[in-house]
Design a protein around this nucleic acid. Sequence first.
DNA 1: GTACGAGTTGAAGTGCGATTCAAGTCAAGC
DNA 2: GCTTGACTTGAATCGCACTTCAACTCGTAC
Lengths: 131, 131
Amino acid sequence: MGLLIGEVARRAGLSTSALRYYEKAGLLPPPSRVSKRRVYDSKVLGRIRIILLALDAGFTVKETKTFLSGYPVTTTPAERWRMLASKKLTELDEQMERLTQMKSILNDSFQCACMRVEDCEERMPPTQRIS
Amino acid sequence: MGLLIGEVARRAGLSTSALRYYEKAGLLPPPSRVSKRRVYDSKVLGRIRIILLALDAGFTVKETKTFLSGYPVTTTPAERWRMLASKKLTELDEQMERLTQMKSILNDSFQCACMRVEDCEERMPPTQRIS
DNA sequence: GTACGAGTTGAAGTGCGATTCAAGTCAAGC
DNA sequence: GCTTGACTTGAATCGCACTTCAACTCGTAC
């Protein structure tokens, strides 16, 4: 029933070293052992999925740890977790905004015949210009 | 009329070392010198703005260089530049998708009373679940 | 009993995007 | 002419997220 690290890695599309790294970093709980080898419950795949989503979305490993555990040491448990989530939501919004701007620049550059991005700058909306 | 590196850094909200680094990396053209010191045209601020947008949006320094110059060595000039822009647009869309998912998880976790993210997983839409 | 494959460890290495440091240069003010 | 402060350089260091390595331990198959 249990999965060895190689199988978990294969299913999650990760390397075994990454999994050990996540464990050491506190992202994954230390699994049970059978003759020293890690044996995982398949539920770990759900956790890994969230970890990867968080990392891909720009959380650091440390943040992801807090995010997952929800129980940082200082202040009240749930409150601080809510603070992190809230702070990260703001950051995500800012990042989305940057991506949107970048996309707009990229799209504009398809429209115009300029060979260099900066040649397009004068066509930009005033908000994107520098004085 | 010209700006020294300290002033450019101040106005751009960067460190002077970052500016020198960008120059060495080919993101910024080597400015003219007055007694060995870099003297910038204020137009450089526009370029820096685009550089920062690109970097913040997830371009690497190398990609940003190609993106700005539009003239990589291999293949035809404009074409390859269009390819990079196109590829990056796709990546941006993927990243936006991840951020959106993450936001949704974050928002959901505000809705429910779970202390740990994983406790919310069973409430997730099927697309976000693991088999 | 030995060879094999998968797993174990801690320590060191990697690539990126900078920052920090030491030692020196230069123009201006006193 | 000496101090001050902004600048110069190359080299070293940093933090992050892993990867790689060397030396070792298992269980299974032959």
